[in-house]
Amino acid sequence: MSRLKLLTITGMRKRMFVGFLSIILLLFFSGMVSLFELGRVSNDTEEILLASKSNVELAGEMISALNEQNDAMICMSVIGDSSESYRDACKRSIERLANAVRLADGRVDDNSAVDSLVMRSNILNAMVTDYLDGNLMLTDEYSSQDWYVDSYKDEYLNVASHITSYMTGAQSTLGPEVNRLSRTAYRAVTPVFISLVVMLVVVLMFYYFLSVYYIRPILRMNKSLGDYLTFKVPFDVGITLRDELVELKERIMALVSRMQ
């Protein structure tokens, strides 16, 4: 019981202070939780966007390298122009593709699309290297054009489709991250909503208590004092809350009795 008495607040000023402090704390606390959760939302969003951007950039690099290689191969094997610039372009594209695939492989832990992309790109690069080194058995019946159409083109399309698979696969691995983001976003919004409801209840309670325990007694005292001064009706007001209002009432009563 004594512990409960500690919770009992007396005094008009204290009551008002604690009442408003409660509302301020409510706003502050819910705001802080929302702020914290919003911070997490921001971090998660940034992570997802960066991962997504990096995936798209890598895929773009692979496609660009592949296209450069294809252009050079068409010029060399189909058109028959074996100038050094095409050979350099081929070598450069092999390196670019290998680097991009290596980066993609290092970034994703468990993605079958990347594994098959690594395998297919290695096969393609090996084919091109063999062509550049002159290791292919090209004859009049089986020319470089035939090799391009029968072997290279298929492998080129294969790698291109694997790059597409990698891109969609890499995006789908972001699914759990997106789910986490949506949960965090929910947690950032709900506290504010619940706090608003609670605050509405608290404000209504505050209004009710102020009305019942302060405004109504003051109005009654005012009316009763007016009645006494006008009609000499005895001053009598019932007040339940034990604070300055009771003192005020007692002082008015003392004043009234002194006047009498």
Binding site: S22, L26, V212
Partner: peptide, 14 residues
């Protein structure tokens, strides 16, 4: 915090 506030608030006045 919200529950405690709802519980304690009426004690200020009642």
């Amino acid at each position: 915090f919200l529950t405690a506030l709802l519980g304690v608030f009426p004690l200020i006045f009642v």
